[in-house]
Amino acid sequence: MTNKLETQKLTRRSLLSSSVAAGAAFLVGTGFVTSNSAAWAMEVKHLTPSTMATLIQMARDIYPHDHVADEFYARAVKGYDHADSTKTVEAGIVALNAAARGKGFASYLDTSWERDRVDILRNIEHSAFFQTIRGGLVTGLYNQKAVWPLFGYEGESFSHGGYLDRGFDDINWI
């Protein structure tokens, strides 16, 4: 899946050898975030890689779907790696990490349980930053066509002739 996040240049080995752990799920290096297994990776040009790793974890904690891989959450927040949003996002993550320290953790990613992170998020849920990230995820995550099959949703049906002959009334348990 590495290539889906445009990191063709980086081999799996080079990713692993040039990065350090950011929380339990992510590794970060100069200009990239990758999963622990380097199954996918993402170049980061404007945000710091640890900010992007925190953002990805935050996205999962806001809408936690255990059957949806991190890659889709990474894709959902990738747009924040942009010159226009750098300042706001970095400031938001600073505030998030401050909230984490208030709960006794070194940072947001320095947590093991989802409930601890949710507790931290509750502290900032009325902030403009949290609402922007949450609101953006509604389309950023759920409007990814690649995510739909993971929920069983079939999307466009006109080109298949609709469901008249494809099970519009095929329910068998009622």
Binding site: I62, H65, V118, R134, Y142, V147, W148
Partner: peptide, 22 residues
């Protein structure tokens, strides 16, 4: 799915919300 995410419980988040969509 996209509209359900937007309209089921606008502003909702966390596992209570996500498991509904699961």
């Amino acid at each position: 799915l996209p509209f359900m995410a937007a309209f089921l419980d606008p502003g909702g988040w966390g596992r209570e919300f996500a498991t509904a969509l699961d």
